[in-house]
């Protein structure tokens, strides 16, 4: 891979002239019906991500990150609000929106009985990539992700690292302008995580708009140009690290994040009162 593993400069690549955001989300709301009424999984989220930008969508488990991503992917329909990807409206033109996005997730797997080439060509089929382009693209990605040695071997026998590389390569088969990454490093070792960092840097270099969803703030701080902090379905804070530092007066992203959490009794205060032993 040609990209450097160095942390990117935290300069915002948001040329005003570029104008159109690759991801443009406005007032996104997702409700689930429950016994108590409605549960607002996502409550009025708006954000813009520009080409060549890595946007860190941060939040604790259950904050609504994944639901937001799913709505961008067209897997779930928003209760209200709009999603525009690469200029296409998700409600009006869902097929084009799906065509413009790719998903990388730690939970995605491979077809064990197919070879990397077959998987990549299958995905190209799903995305409607013409045959000649698909073949050329598979070759190019095989070089890029160093898949040459096992392009025509079944995935069943591959190492975790090889499978991860195949997974990253297949995500770019249709050359999408937007890549959504949902906890991409979960469960990966150092080498695996590093590969994700390189991949992200590569995407940025390619001018893709990337949304990097994670609860690991160290990774986010290292990779992302801009951050959105979600809490209980709402986007509470947004900006570059410098902007966040200015807004909150905190130096570390972790502290900024913890400020959002509800005050919780400390462990010592919650210590249960145990009966003293030896007393009748």
């Amino acid at each position: 891979m040609s990209a450097s593993p160095e942390p990117p400069a935290v300069a915002v690549i948001r040329p005003a002239s570029a104008g159109q955001a690759a991801v443009d989300v406005r007032d996104l709301v997702k409700e689930f019906a429950t016994a108590t009424g409605t549960l607002l999984a996502v409550n009025g989220v708006s954000m813009q991500v520009y080409p060549g930008e890595v946007y860190g969508l941060l939040g604790a488990n259950g904050a609504g990150k994944t639901t937001t991503l799913r709505m961008m992917l067209g897997l779930q329909r928003p209760t209200s609000g709009t999603v525009r990807i690469a200029g296409f409206d998700a409600a009006a033109d869902p097929i084009e929106v799906k065509r413009s996005v790719s998903l990388v997730s730690s939970s995605s797997g491979l077809y064990q009985w197919l070879t990397p080439r077959e998987i990549m060509l299958y995905l190209a089929d799903l995305y409607g990539v013409p045959d000649d382009q698909a073949a050329a693209r598979a070759e190019m990605l095989a070089d890029l992700f160093d898949l040459r040695g096992f392009m025509d071997r079944r995935c069943a026998g591959m190492s975790t690292g090889q499978q991860q590389r195949v997974n990253l390569a297949r995500s770019l088969m249709h050359d999408p302008p937007v890549v959504l990454m949902d906890e991409p490093t979960r469960g990966l070792d150092i080498v695996g995580s590093r590969r994700i960092f390189e991949y992200t840097a590569h995407l940025r270099q390619q001018g893709k708009a990337v949304i990097f969803c994670t609860h690991r703030l160290d990774e986010a701080q290292r990779l992302c140009c801009r951050f959105g902090l979600m809490f209980r379905g709402q986007l509470k804070l947004e900006g570059t690290l410098a902007e966040l530092q200015r807004q909150t007066g905190r130096e570390h992203l972790t502290d900024v994040f913890l400020d959002l959490m509800p005050p919780e009794n400390s462990l010592a205060e919650r210590q249960p009162v145990l009966p003293e032993s030896g007393q009748p």
């Binding site: 690469a86 089929d125 409607g128 013409p130 050359d175 302008p177």
Partner: peptide
């Protein structure tokens, strides 16, 4: 790799051909 922003891959494959390919992949896998 050229940056193919917003370049839409042509929808060249007809529905039937795509279906055949989808089926082919499933058969192969099974």
């Amino acid at each position: 790799m050229n940056s193919g922003h917003y370049r839409r891959p042509e929808a060249a494959t007809s529905a039937f051909r795509r279906l055949t390919r989808l089926a082919l992949k499933e058969c192969r896998e099974s």
